[in-house]
Design a binder for these strands. Structure first.
Length: 372
DNA sequence: AACGCGGGGGG
DNA sequence: CCCCCAGCGTT
């Protein structure tokens, strides 16, 4: 047997092997009990760049709140974002809502049922289109997600940088070839992702019990921990947020974030961002990000044009994958005669109203501490 | 082709 | 501390 026919046999046995592995190892997950394209779509959007353990409770809450796509279409975007709160990548929630409305009103509630039609929907890219097309409609189109990159890079010894455009073509072509031998496209797609999540994990994969062990280029050459190749990401940006929490008559002032920045359409407090600390005590970590007392008074003077009391701020750090935000929170109790002269985008909310607004985790955590 | 976009969990 | 997670849209 020459190397070419040998490789060919690996390619034809790959999918059936994973399908058999899957039947013995699959987890019982709620979206695996339905073929409703709406629920499959919902689960796939939630699971984008999100671990199953983190996304599962959100899926349950969304299905309970919006059992059908028309019910999701009928809700306010703000309520949907509130339900999404804490999951991150909030454009997913906005696109979810937009697509729910589009399908309900323009497509008469009938979800697109082919890969190419699905691709046209907001928030549905190549991965999600393939997932829905195969899981809900049985179309023979391969999913290519982070799990698939890892499994294929290892089994077939692919050394291309998976962040490059050329590599994406290489993996997509190989995936398309491999799915041709699957007994069932939906089962195979589930299988390869589950295999990547459970067995062929990023760190210390379980090669000793692996059904592909003797065909895996990475294992046979001792490169499990070198593949896939992935170039490093950009360094984390440091930002300094100075939040002012105006209070009056039991209410607090919040505003919706409208700019092209993080947390779009979520609510936070009046914000002054500073390039860096202007604190003089550069040796103290605690104070490095605080504005000086003078700066605080100057900043507030622009807002309310009168001396107001700023109690010593509390500090919090919020880590995002691409930013590190160091926040200072200043509480400002405004006298009644100043409560009407806030910046235009700020509005007063009761604690109960505030609870129902979508907010970044940084803000939610602070409010929880503030109100107990 | 590169970049921006959240937040959390595990080694 | 670093990595990565059932990726996508914009520039």
């Amino acid at each position: 047997m020459n190397w070419q026919s040998d490789l060919n046999s690996i390619e034809t046995s790959f999918a059936p092997t994973l399908e058999r592995w899957y039947e013995r190892h699959k987890r019982d997950l709620p979206w695996r009990h339905t073929r409703d394209p709406y629920r499959i779509w919902l689960s796939e959007i939630i699971l984008q760049q999100t671990r199953v353990a983190q996304g599962k409770p959100y899926y349950e809450r969304f299905v309970a709140a919006y059992p059908t796509i028309s019910e999701m279409a009928r809700t306010d975007e703000r309520d949907l974002l509130r339900l999404w709160q804490g999951l991150g990548y909030y454009s997913r929630a906005r696109n979810l809502h937009q697509t729910a409305r589009y399908v309900t009103t323009q497509l008469d509630g009938k979800f697109p049922d082919t890969y190419h039609e699905l691709l046209k929907m907001k928030g549905i890219g190549s991965y999600t289109a393939a997932a829905i097309a195969s899981f809900a409609f049985g179309e023979r189109v391969p999913v290519v997600d982070g799990n698939v990159y890892r499994v294929l890079a290892r089994v077939f010894g692919i050394e291309e940088d998976i962040t490059s455009t050329q590599a994406k073509k290489t993996f997509a072509a190989l995936a398309m070839k491999l799915i041709q031998s699957a007994n069932d496209p939906a089962t195979y797609n589930q299988a390869i992702m589950e295999f990547g999540a459970i067995q062929c994990t990023p760190m210390s994969p379980d090669c000793l019990l692996c059904p592909l062990q003797q065909q895996c280029v990475a294992y046979l050459t001792g490169r499990q921990n070198k593949l896939p190749v992935k170039s490093k990401k950009a360094p984390v940006r440091e930002r300094f947020f100075n939040y002012f929490i105006f209070r009056n008559n039991g209410k607090i002032a919040l505003r919706e974030r409208m700019t092209r920045d993080i947390w779009q359409n979520l609510y936070d407090f009046y914000l002054l961002e500073s390039e860096r600390s202007d604190s003089l005590s550069g040796t103290s970590n605690e104070l490095q990000t605080a504005l000086s007392a003078t700066s605080v008074q100057e900043s507030l003077h622009e807002v309310v044009r009168e001396r107001v009391l700023a109690v010593p701020p509390t500090e919090a750090v919020q880590l995002l994958s691409h930013q590190r935000i160091r926040a200072q929170f200043y509480i400002i109790d405004l006298p009644d005669h100043l409560a009407g002269s806030l910046p235009i985008d700020l509005q007063w909310y009761t604690p109960d109203e505030t609870e129902h607004l979508p907010k970044p985790v940084l803000i939610t955590n602070y409010l929880d501490k503030l109100f107990g």
